[in-house]
């Protein structure tokens, strides 16, 4: 393989890294683990990836890609088609609008930003669940999922950061 081809492949990998990692996070989130209660509290890995890339490189993850990844998740999870992309797009727009307040600050601020984003996502998800079920639905599963996501976030953020640096993406 020539050097030029290698360089092009590396450049392509670098450009598509945010979309690829978000897509993988989405697939990982549907893998079932034989852990007690895991299904109901499985962390929102897709939201974490979207948050990270929207803070680090807002334009590298287009709305269209988030829409498609959300649709994929709905297809796999058996949810009403369009629900996940709707919530994820709203969250992406919110994070993009707050990007300058979070980017380049300490990890604590980065994490607090995610806590607020995940909390807003949990509220919207619960409202959608109530609206679509046509009756009252307890918010407990969403709250547990939020807590688990907040706890898992530093690990995924670190993994994404390492991957980004390995591909020489400026973060």
């Amino acid at each position: 393989m020539s050097r030029a081809t290698l360089l092009t492949a590396e450049r392509l990998a670098r450009l598509s890294l945010p979309v690829t990692t978000t897509f993988l996070a989405s697939l990982f989130s549907v893998i079932s683990l034989p852990m007690s209660g895991y299904v109901s509290v499985a962390p929102g890995l897709t939201l974490m990836a979207i948050y990270c890339w929207s803070v680090w490189r807002p334009l590298s993850l287009p709305f269209g890609a988030v829409f498609l990844i959300g649709m994929l998740e709905d297809l796999l999870r058996g949810l009403p088609l369009g629900l996940t992309p709707l919530l994820l797009l709203i969250m992406q727009a919110v994070v993009r609008s707050q990007h300058r307040h979070i980017h380049g600050r300490t990890f604590d601020i980065f994490w607090i930003g995610f806590v607020l984003t995940a909390a807003l996502h949990a509220i919207l998800q619960w409202i959608a669940a109530v609206a679509l079920s046509g009756g009252y639905v307890g918010p407990e599963p969403g709250l547990f999922q939020l807590m688990f996501s907040v706890a898992v976030f530093p690990i995924l953020a670190w993994l994404l950061l390492r991957t980004g640096r390995a591909f020489r993406v400026s973060i």
């Binding site: 549907v30 893998i31 079932s32 683990l33 895991y38 299904v39 109901s40 509290v41 499985a42 796999l76 999870r77 058996g78 949810l79 949990a122 998800q125 619960w126 669940a129 079920s133 639905v137 599963p141 969403g142 547990f144 999922q145």
Partner: peptide
């Protein structure tokens, strides 16, 4: 075999 956990916080299903 259960391949993946469908659903989410407000739905319960398996693939």
């Amino acid at each position: 075999r259960v391949m993946a956990s469908g659903g989410g916080a407000y739905t319960r299903s398996f693939i």
